[in-house]
Amino acid sequence: MTDDMRTNEPEYYTRGGDNGQTRLSGHGDLSKLDSLVAAYAECDEANSTVSVAMAMGGLPADIVRTLSSVQNDLFDIQADLTVPTDSDTAKVRIVQGHIDRLERAIDHYGQDAPDLSGMVLPGGTVASALLSQSRTVARRAERALWAAVEDHPQTVNPMTARYMNRLSSLLFVLARGANAEHGDVTWAPGVSVAPAHTDSETDAVL
Rank of each mutant, 00 (worst) to 15 (best):
Met1Gly: 15
Asp3Gly: 10
Asp3Arg: 15
Met5Tyr: 15
Arg6Ile: 05
Asn8Phe: 14
Thr14Cys: 04
Thr14Gly: 05
Gly16Arg: 14
Gly20Glu: 07
Leu24Asn: 02
Gly26Lys: 12
Gly28Arg: 08
Gly28Pro: 02
Leu30Tyr: 04
Lys32His: 05
Leu33Asn: 15
Asp34Pro: 03
Leu36Phe: 11
Val37Tyr: 05
Ala38Cys: 14
Ala39Asn: 02
Tyr40Gln: 00
Ala41Gln: 09
Asp44Tyr: 01
Ser51Asn: 15
Ala53Asn: 04
Met54Gln: 04
Ala55Gly: 04
Gly57Ile: 03
Gly57Ala: 06
Ile63Phe: 06
Ser68Asn: 14
Val70Pro: 00
Val70Cys: 00
Asp76Gln: 03
Asp80Gln: 02
Val83Ala: 05
Val83Arg: 03
Pro84Cys: 04
Ser87Ala: 11
Asp88Lys: 11
Asp88Asn: 11
Ala90Pro: 05
Val95Ile: 09
Val95Ala: 07
Gly97Asn: 10
Gly97Pro: 00
Asp100Gly: 02
Leu102Asn: 01
Glu103Ala: 11
Ile106Gly: 03
Ile106Ala: 04
Ile106Leu: 07
Asp107Val: 07
His108Thr: 15
His108Cys: 11
Asp112Ala: 13
Ala113Glu: 03
Met119Ser: 14
Pro122Asn: 00
Ser128Ala: 14
Ala129Lys: 07
Ser132Thr: 12
Val137Ile: 13
Arg139Met: 09
Ala144Gly: 02
Glu150Pro: 03
His152Arg: 06
Val156Met: 02
Val156Ser: 02
Pro158Met: 02
Pro158Phe: 00
Ala161Tyr: 01
Met164Trp: 06
Leu167Pro: 00
Leu171Cys: 00
Arg176His: 10
Ala180Asn: 11
Ala180Val: 13
Glu181Gly: 15
Asp184Gly: 03
Thr186Arg: 15
Trp187Arg: 12
Ala188Asn: 14
Pro189Asp: 06
Gly190Arg: 09
Gly190Leu: 09
Val191His: 11
Val191Arg: 13
Ala194Gly: 07
Pro195Gln: 07
His197Cys: 11
Thr198Ile: 11
Glu201Pro: 12
Thr202Met: 09
Leu206Gln: 13
Leu206Cys: 08
